[in-house]
Amino acid sequence: MFFWVIQRDLLLAIRRRSDVLTTLFFFVIVVSLFPLSVGPEMNMLRTMAPGIVWVAALLASMLSLGRLFSNDYMDGTLEQMLLSPQSLSVLVLGKALAHWLVTGVPLVLMAPILGIQYDLPMDALFVLTISLLLGTPVLSLIGAIGAALTLGLRGGGVLISLLVLPLYIPVLIFGSGAVEANMAGVGHDAHLSLLGAFLLVSLVFAPWAAASSLRVSME
């Protein structure tokens, strides 16, 4: 049933390709705005690159969270999921994973190209990609909690950012920190291991918290 949920969400995403592309282009545009606002000085851009790419990834991933449950909520599918004999946490995990495949993975693939715009060295590009690969699923998982809590509320889109962005801070710190550490030559292993640890912890807790939130929101 877990795979049915993923398969269904991917199928829906393919039928609605434009949604996926908007998130990706948002990411690209935000990253491209920075040189225009702070100037094209390459040394400065190089130091700022990890932070900019990561903040943009955070915002892009957050923007698409609204859709995570709201469509299913409006057409009644979510009710059916609550009535499924399968545990709701597993279904939520499936949905969060599908969300990551649809929004997170394109960001990961696009990041090295954007990194080149910022003149990042080869090593740093690699670390940036790995850090996003480990970090973006955490964003989808934590985001699922926020999306579930704000389901059907007016102004839910802005509210979700208030709830979720502070919780994203550790991922941001270690994600961009890994790239900076690599560029400073002090080693990035610790950062990446911690990101991996966050991923494991959120894999265990977030689906459960999001499932409880959904039950609260659906009452």
Binding site: R15, D75, L83
Partner: peptide, 18 residues
């Protein structure tokens, strides 16, 4: 309980794109 139950509500859970 949910193994024994089928509920079809006002909102039927039919997806436009499928």
């Amino acid at each position: 309980y949910y193994r024994d139950l089928t509920y079809i509500g006002h909102l039927t859970g039919t997806k436009d794109d499928l």
